[in-house]
């Protein structure tokens, strides 16, 4: 907290020069993880991917019960069928991904040098479809969530390894995601950090606010509130509406860069997807 106060004072003195004081992504990632490891010293590092279940014993017990036979099992099975089916032109999803798409979700989002943009798994799946003459899928739930659930299940437990290549465009995308994460918006004037950094671990009525570290590691999620499996894009748009900010387009760079920033912060933590949440 002291550092933030000091930073606040510095702001009045040299606002224009502020941009220069941001450290490198790697340094920021170290600070980010250390902040949460210190804020929740009793939480095992890998447990951060389980969000509220790492912080609330009662919820954890119910989660363990549900994990015996999780309802997202249907998503995984449906996703596997969709993933394995060949496209009309004979190709398949496997042809669009490294290692035939098996055990690779820990590398996403991935910066694509050709387009100069961040490719989340959802964007990559839709890109694969359009390249093979198919309509892109709805990026919030349904088949997209099921395919992602299957792909994530093949990476279960692998450590996140999101890379920011030595390319100014990649760094710019990372900074854009970072800016979005810390920018207050909507009539409620909250940023993602308001709830998931300052408010991490607190209750919002019966919800426990998950720490930002590991926040996106268990997507796609089967939420009891949704009654089906949903993607990270769906959750981003839902959070926007909850602070009364009009959401961006699902396939916008805004959300891809935000996912890029958050996933980079998860590096080293295990893939927790598909996950289950209240």
């Amino acid at each position: 907290m002291r550092r933030i106060l000091l930073a606040g004072i510095a702001l009045c003195v040299a606002a224009p020069a502020l941009a220069a004081t941001l450290s490198s992504p790697a340094a920021e990632q170290k600070a980010f993880q250390t902040y949460f490891f210190n804020k929740f010293p009793t939480v095992a590092h890998d447990d951060f991917v389980n969000g509220p279940y790492a912080l609330d014993a009662g919820m954890r017990a119910q989660w363990k019960d549900i994990l015996q036979f999780p309802p997202y099992q249907f998503s995984i099975d449906n996703g596997k069928a969709l993933f394995s089916a060949a496209f009309p032109n004979g190709h398949g999803y496997g042809d669009c991904f490294a290692n035939k798409g098996i055990g690779i979700t820990q590398n996403y989002p991935m910066f694509d040098a050709k387009s100069g943009k961040v490719m989340t798994l959802e964007l990559a799946i839709n890109k694969c479809r359009t390249e093979n003459g198919l309509k892109p899928l709805d990026m919030s739930a349904g088949d997209m969530a099921d395919i992602e659930a299957y792909m994530a299940s093949t990476s279960d437990g692998k450590a996140f390894a999101v890379k920011i290549p030595n390319d100014p465009r990649a760094l710019a995308d990372y900074r854009a995601g970072e800016a979005y994460f810390y920018t207050r918006r909507g009539q409620l004037n909250f940023s993602c950090a308001s709830c998931h950094v300052q408010g991490a671990g607190d209750h919002l009525r019966s919800d426990v606010l998950a720490p930002a570290l590991g926040l996106t590691a268990s997507f796609p999620l089967y939420r009891s509130a949704w009654g089906n499996t949903g993607t990270l894009t769906r959750r981003f748009m839902e959070c926007n509406v909850q602070v009364r900010a009009v959401p961006a387009k699902p396939d916008s760079d805004t959300y891809a860069n935000l996912a890029y920033f958050l996933a980079y912060m998860n590096n080293g933590l295990p893939v927790g997807g598909p996950g289950e949440r209240p």
Binding site: L11, E28, Y182, A193
Partner: peptide, 23 residues
């Protein structure tokens, strides 16, 4: 009025967000 406030909010946040970054 609210649209104006939304624009002002964004303008302020353009520099303010960096004060929140975990360093």
């Amino acid at each position: 009025a609210q649209a104006k406030t939304a624009l002002t909010e964004a303008k302020e946040q353009a520099s303010l967000w960096q004060t929140q970054v975990i360093r």
